[in-house]
Design a protein around this nucleic acid. Structure first.
Lengths: 193, 193, 193, 193
DNA sequence: AATGAATGAGCTTTCATTCAT
DNA sequence: AATGAATGAAAGCTCATTCAT
């Protein structure tokens, strides 16, 4: 390994240790001592790679969030029409959770333990989501909600993912979750007039 | 004041101090030192009224959650039909937040800082909600979702409240929030087949 | 009960609670809170009967020590000659321990937890012991040790009781303890010249 | 000083401070705050060298006990016969106390403040002592006590040391202590049959 | 770049004692 | 005489960060 590679390797090990600890035990348990111990380096070494503890914790969610976004994108990009595609995205979200058990904790605790990262992640998720729905609306696949309303819809759908994953866990989920979600988006909840 | 009243008063002051600090700064900042200082009593006094720090923090959410439930109930009980009533509840939730700025933080952080209280609160909210929707379905006001699907819907609607309040804050909210919410529940998101 | 009797009763209950707690758990665990709780009175009541916590703890050993002295006296007063009588006293000491499990702890910890009481108790035990041995010497039953030497012997014999009870516990003891003790006192340890 | 030496030096200073404080004032007064202050380091430094307060306190007696055992061994190893040698050991014990004033307190309080260390120390002292007496018996220098009786004798002799040092202090002692001890071991206490 | 000991502020909790009721 | 809440000092321990090596 070159010097630069060694350097990169240590940084990666610190990041992975933090990811593992936060995912398993939460941000509070991710002390510098614990992270460096798991990474197999001395405590002081930490500060050669990250400005401080918060800096590493703040880097967790955006990085992993990106990973998740790619995963969902891959699983849903070919699906049509948009209503099916949204359900595919919804399913892909839970599939990702199933394979990345710790992510939910990294995400949910971030609101308080890594607020800046959290805000960034939410923006990273919401903006493209809203663009997708906007374009679908322009194609006629989504009803004619105004742009500010679509923004609201986006947050409803993200809130739905969050609460459902929290309540139902991250294992393989029952069908009613998907059928109810799909049905709500297609025809609403209340009996029409 | 009688002796019992004084006693009650101190306990109330401790509770209110904690409520204020957690609402403003989060559970982590609610040290016994800070709580007792704000309540104007000595640190040792704390333990005459609560078994330990966690006991007080755990009592925050159930108590305040009850308060919120009453508020929402009052604001929505006379509204008909159910679709309007759900929007009334939705509005009342945000009205409550507007008047109780700290509640959101007490609620959201509780998942990690007071997990037992959180689970209890979520159950307290979800169970009656599902009963209401179930009865409305039986009256024909809600489409014929199966019971497990209604449970899913309930968590979607609670997630919606959470993410929207998080994103839009707790001040007076714009109309699109309510119109988008109402419209989604009435007719879904996607253009009909 | 008259007022004085009630008063005496509370004081007795406090004493008994302390005796029980110290015997079972040691002086350190005998907090005023725990003593008053076991006695069934309020904390403040304690200070109507004892100047402070230490005053009660200091009264434990002398009182119980007296009790033990009576017990031993009764069991040994008729035994003759002195060599047998000393063994009878020695046996009675362990018999008392067997029936008063907590005493050993009250005694041994007292050296540090209630030093004044300890010194007093040791004097209470040593002085009559030395008188007994002195008179036996004058009768010719004990060899002609000088008085300062008898004082030394007394502390050796008390130390023996202490270490043996510590090492062998306070249950029913094996015969070698008594035979070795008796033999040492009768003929020493080393093979005579 | 090299880094390792500095490290060792700090640990030594903490140990010596604890030894001094416990010897002078007892275990209860040996708070981490007091120890570190005397050692001239910050409180947090303590935990770089010992797992916790108890760990240091538990290391006191075994270490110093070892030291004392060496001292006594050196002072007595050449003395013969065994009866004289035992008196030499007895004297050496008090000589050690005279030079290490705090040891007595470290030892006696340990029964309650560092029970594990105490038990270990007692075993460390008793076992070789009993071996010595057993061999002397086999050589004919000690009367034919059975092995369980010799164990009893050992605890009597240790109890004697403890109570005598407690009663007579640790300064230079009067001759009667030694003469009485020697005489008891040689010919017992009571006048022969 | 890596090390790991030192720092000191901060935490929760305990407890003997006081005193107004 | 009895009550029991209030007090506040003191305890053990944690941890992010610094810095000399």
């Amino acid at each position: 390994m070159t010097r630069a590679e060694r350097n990169e390797d240590v940084k990666r090990r610190l990041f992975d240790a933090a990811r593992h600890i936060v995912g398993e035990l939460g941000y509070a348990e991710a002390s510098v001592a614990r992270i460096t111990e798991m990474a197999g380096v001395a405590q002081g070494t930490f500060y050669n790679h990250f400005a401080n503890r918060q800096a590493l914790l703040d880097s967790l969610l955006p990085t992993i969030g990106q990973e998740m976004a790619h995963f969902i994108q891959e699983r849903s990009e070919t699906v049509r029409p948009e209503s099916e595609r949204e359900v595919a995205r919804f399913r892909a979200f839970f599939d990702y959770l199933g394979e990345n058990a710790g992510f939910l904790r990294i995400l949910n605790e971030a609101e308080f333990a890594a607020p800046e990262a959290y805000r960034q992640h939410m923006d990273n998720m919401a903006a493209p989501f809203q663009r997708i729905l906007g374009r679908a609306r322009d194609r006629g696949e989504v009803q004619d909600y105004a742009d500010p309303e679509l923004e609201v819809i986006v947050h409803i759908l993200m809130g739905a993912r969050s609460y459902l994953s929290q309540h139902y866990g991250s294992g393989p989920l029952d069908e009613p979750i998907f059928s109810a979600y799909a049905r709500l988006l297609r025809g609403g909840l209340f009996a029409g007039s």
